[in-house]
């Protein structure tokens, strides 16, 4: 069972995916200096009406095994301890303990 934080993150991911194209369109208008300021301001106001879980910055990569938020090794999507456990159990192809 995923933790509440992971569920929240999943919610944010789906919200971002659903609203991305519309947000991009508003961003284009709001940041376009060749358009009249009034139009740009209106677009910025529209951007501000989007909810919290539609912004890509609310999405955080958490550990896919435990849901931990810190110490994530992004190539594997695992926290550092889970990475160690799985690597030692030979569950990560191409990863083995250094020894020289």
């Amino acid at each position: 069972m995923p933790t509440a934080r992971v569920l929240r993150d999943i919610k944010a991911r789906h919200g971002v995916n659903a609203n991305e194209i519309l947000r991009r369109a508003y961003l284009y208008v709001a940041r376009n200096q060749t358009l009249p300021p009034q139009v740009r301001f209106q677009a910025q106001l529209q951007l501000n009406t989007f909810g919290r879980y539609t912004r890509p910055t609310t999405v955080k990569n958490r550990c896919t095994a435990t849901g931990k938020g810190r110490g994530i090794i992004s190539e594997f999507g695992l926290s550092r301890y889970q990475f160690r456990l799985k690597a030692l159990a030979n569950e990560l192809p191409g990863v083995h303990k250094a020894s020289w």
Partner: peptide
Amino acid sequence: SVRTGAKYLRARLRGPSMIQYYPDELS
């Protein structure tokens, strides 16, 4: 070098890869 906002249209969409981050779990 006027800012035309083209970079927001040019950038790839990040949503499709975002929703695939967590593996599908069956409960």
